[in-house]
Design a protein around this nucleic acid. Sequence first.
DNA 1: CCAACCATGTAAGCTGTTACATGATTGA
DNA 2: TCAATCATGTAACAGCTTACATGGTTGG
Lengths: 176, 176
Amino acid sequence: MKLTTLGYALIGLVQAEPCSGYALRRVFETTPMGTYSSSPGSIYPALARLVAAGFLEKRAPAGGGKKLFHVTTRGRDAMNAWLRTPVTEEEVTRSVDLVLLRFAFLENVDEPGVTQSFLASFESALSNRIEQIEAYLESPAGRALGRHGRLAVENGLQGLMTQRQWAATSKKEFRS
Amino acid sequence: MKLTTLGYALIGLVQAEPCSGYALRRVFETTPMGTYSSSPGSIYPALARLVAAGFLEKRAPAGGGKKLFHVTTRGRDAMNAWLRTPVTEEEVTRSVDLVLLRFAFLENVDEPGVTQSFLASFESALSNRIEQIEAYLESPAGRALGRHGRLAVENGLQGLMTQRQWAATSKKEFRS
DNA sequence: CCAACCATGTAAGCTGTTACATGATTGA
DNA sequence: TCAATCATGTAACAGCTTACATGGTTGG
């Protein structure tokens, strides 16, 4: 079964701390993870699918009380595999957000080298993409852009450069 | 009928220059607009829907030749309305890409003030969002973040700041 | 007691993804 | 002539959005 972005987001949050469906919705409503929709119509069915596919399970804690979602071994494995896939240029082009989501969940992995290599692949994917866009700007098509078009492309470019800077700085921080 | 992102992208491109479905796919494949999928299964049905809803029409140019898509009055009106809606904080949170798409298509509007006010609303939406995230980082929840989580949020923050800088600079450029 | 919040769902509808399918044209 | 590119579609499937629906708990 192929997981969606929302699927990974849910597994990652549950892995950090077992919680209820409602608590997950609150996270999307009240934290900068609000890029995802918090509507019940997306969360609850998604959770049900994840349980059905064996990535999560719903059970009461040892001392009794409310049932909460917990990650299964299967879910943890899927998460680990996902976190370890290198960042591709394609991913940087389509959805940088997704890359950052993965980075955030690296918190749950304790091998130190993983974050390092993740950031390294991110940096190089960014560099490739930046080169591509710069090449485009200097190509005939790029030169033919109007003011708005050019500025919009430059905006994207600046965003990628900021990310690259961030990746470089963060990598240093993880040497300790 | 409510238009999707892809719908607006298609109308905007066709408005800039009448073209075939295949040409539109090429744009998504070969330019930085590649955030959108270029698969035939998305483009052709989307174009068909836009024609059915009266935003586009397919016709041969005066001198004969291949049939191309053209914007209708209805399509142009929808586009203008969309381009003139101020940027909201919600939009900045959910999909900055969409904001930039709108900006790029402002090229097709010749009233000069429109770009100015668009950028002004973008700038203020960004400022609000930036404040929110900064507040979050200093809240108990924010302070409880691990290294990865904090860095991920800071990455988002830096991205927004870059955008704000861009908006300010661009606004100046449009005074001329 | 009533509003607000906690908490969990279902159902219709639309859109995008993936994969398959077809045929014309052009350059090596 | 054969591969690549032009060019346009269809069909199955899964996911998200929106809207509806329900009921418990808590604080003013």
